[in-house]
Amino acid sequence: MFLINCPYCGQRDQSEFSAGGEAHIVRPKQPTELSDDQWAEYLFMRKNIKGVQFERWNHTHGCRKWFNMVRDTSNDKIHAIYKMGEKPPIK
């Protein structure tokens, strides 16, 4: 449980938000040409990082907008928050 600085609404309680999993997984451009392995990779396989992870969040009980977050999953410390479509501010 932590506070999240929504890029649209400001600081709110984490319980207002939903986590949308790993960020920057690009939907395949040519789905019909994908092998089963590639589909599995896109749909199911995750890095599930212990440490700094890039992820998507949604302010479900607020503005309902999606945004990205860089968070350390080993201590829940948030390093950066940036809007959808923007480049990650840190690597």
Binding site: M45, K47, N48, I49, K50
Partner: peptide, 18 residues
């Protein structure tokens, strides 16, 4: 819960979330 941490050592991705 740390299965992915071990899997990442050999660049293996698992369908897991911890």
């Amino acid at each position: 819960g740390h299965s992915s941490v071990i899997a990442n050592m050999v660049d293996l991705k698992l369908p897991l979330e911890s």
